[in-house]
Design a protein around this nucleic acid. Structure first.
Lengths: 219, 219, 219, 219
DNA sequence: TATGAATGAGAATTCATTCAT
DNA sequence: GATGAATGAATTCTCATTCAT
């Protein structure tokens, strides 16, 4: 009965623009208020259109949220996918940390949307977690585990290492408000410092002890 | 107009019990669904009473949420307050990590309530952040900074160190669903492994290089 | 989440009255406009209360409609259930016709509600049709069939006889508007004439030929 | 303001085809869901065109429904019009029954559309009922009445006889769902049996008693 | 003609809060 | 203290209709 813009062929220019505008507005609102807290009114207003018009492009609130999450998942998995078993262990891991931090800096709304969803039990994304995320994490954890067993990095639990990378980077997006409150808005360039700190931390934590090839120069 | 609890002097036992039950139920529901997603019906049912009865004890949804957050703030600040400038730097920091992880394990609902609030811009807790949290963090950051400058720990940015401790520990409460999805429900005792991993990580990251007093033997 | 008047014990007086008023109003409106055509606004207004108040007693439009249909089914089956295999065939059948016509006269709204539901494919009552109605009809059709085979009534198809009784009696309720238009509102006492006509018709149709025991005196 | 079909002179073939398609689709949908329950979306989809396109041919939902009813009325009156005062009374009446049953078999959607309209108070067809239907019925009732007074058929109330013919035949279209539920989908050829039954019934009911010219042999 | 786009007027339902007992 | 009853203000979603091309 609903007519979700039948575009078996090619989406019109106007469709693309509107869709983009809606998704952007929805990301804004959902990431700020959560699924239940967000209202279509807010989103429609933010997207510069009427509510029925918004519903002309997306079947409903749920569908809109879903569309956001789906687009998000790819972006979210990509940094870890790039972790290369053939690369230098420490460099690979630090590069991963770096990419994740960039994501937090450049896509904080996406990060918060994701965080909101997970915190509330992932009712709308649970499948992707076990279907896409888990296999990828297991695969990369195996890579890291192999590095550790080979003595190329310190002997750490790979899964928990990944968790600590996730949390310490995403924190800058998700808990932005708190960081602002603590650092003050005058604090310049928190991401540069965060990047430096995290690289230093993970490099030292994982470096195989005494022979830290690349001594981190902090400050 | 509203008469929260008539006698400020001695709250009846019944009053205390009811209040306790309501706060517990509210914590359950708010932490799971967020402020807007939670309904007084859910909370009242979970607390085993009628909605009007609940509203006899708390002036409204907002007030109930506020009460939870206020109680929470103390608990939340305590571990950091215990960080002792006079203690051994590494031990103090590791003890802090440990206490935070215990909080995440023992009070995951509180952690999620807090996370929900922060992610959504802390509309109801902003004052506490700048009024209570910031001063404390600044104070302890100064302590850590002094340790670093004295060469007693590695030269790290104290604020970002604190952020990384917060995030990597709270992650086990806030992103519990995701961790479950990745580790599988069969994974035993994730907190033990997390504790071991985090201690190892922070000890290596902060240890002043070659003379790591307490070499952590994981596994 | 919904609190459909938790009356595990005994419904309050006020509950009974309101429930009664709502069901009555709903019958009015549903029978006149069909399920989709009826609005809760209409029903609530007709019941003399606000829409949310109505929804305090019934979980929703669907549930309200369902409640009506369920109450209806009993009433609707009763006349046929009374058809007694041990009675005089013609008398039994004529009594059934009579009872059905009385129902049409006294409960036209119920009849129209039922008709509306059936005409539209019985989406909300299909189960009752095959679960309750069919067995009963089959049973009574067997009785009639036995009478016919025994030569106690004319040899008619019992199922189609039942259909003709249903249709010719319910017609006076369901097609009331049309009958009014044809007969004019001045026509007195259409049910008396209908009763006389139907009794005559079925008696002659079923009477075993020449020896019509009870000659019908029409006019 | 609205320009239904510009050229009243020669409707294009395309116009005719579209109009036909729309009316057919509308009949489908209206007869199944009632006026309020039907949506233009459904109808447009069923007619294989867009909603605005449909509205190019018909001024609105109301107008479309009206158009259907008007076309219907002729078809609906025809069988009764053919009742010939000069024919054999019993044969004429049975032929009428037969034609009505054929209509029910061949045009069940039309029958249900009509039934829906009447049951809901005929808000959109009341005029036709008193303007066209009533005169015709009165005329034919007079014919039947004359036959009865002349002793050519049993002495029955002509109007109620007509009602019983209407109801017992249309029942097979309008209450199709119920009949299916009772007879089961395996029941073959219900219209043949219905025809036999109804002919038998009306012939016996109207036959002038002892000298039933054409004894009906059922089964 | 035809259709993608847009919308205002409902309609169902939810929910925090108030009232009365 | 406690609760059944009630409601106004949303909030999501539907749908007939209109607009612009």
């Amino acid at each position: 009965m609903h007519n979700p813009v039948p575009q078996p062929k090619k989406p019109t220019r106007i469709q693309q623009e509107k869709t983009r505008a809606i998704l952007d507005a929805a990301l804004d609102v959902f990431s700020k208020y959560g699924f239940r807290g967000a209202t279509l009114d807010q989103i429609a207003t933010a997207a510069g259109m009427s509510k029925p018009n918004l519903l002309y492009y997306f079947a409903g609130k749920e569908a809109l949220h879903q569309a956001l999450l789906e687009r998000l998942m790819e972006t979210w998995l990509e940094p870890l996918q790039k972790l290369d078993a053939a690369g230098d262990p420490l460099d690979e891991i630090c590069a991963y940390v770096h990419r994740k931090l960039e994501l937090a800096r450049d896509f904080p709304r996406e990060s918060r949307l994701f965080a909101n969803e997970i915190i509330q039990g992932a009712p709308r994304i649970a499948d992707s977690l076990t279907g896409q995320l888990k296999p990828l994490v297991d695969e990369k954890a195996a890579v890291i585990g192999a590095w550790a067993r080979a003595g190329r990095i310190a002997d750490v639990n790979p899964h928990h290492l990944i968790f600590s990378i996730w949390s310490s980077t995403q924190h800058y997006a998700d808990f932005d408000t708190q960081i602002n409150a603590v650092l003050g808005s005058a604090y310049p360039d928190r991401f540069t410092d965060a990047d430096r700190f995290l690289e230093q931390m993970f490099r030292r934590a994982l470096g195989s002890g005494e022979k830290s090839a690349k001594p981190v120069v902090s400050d």
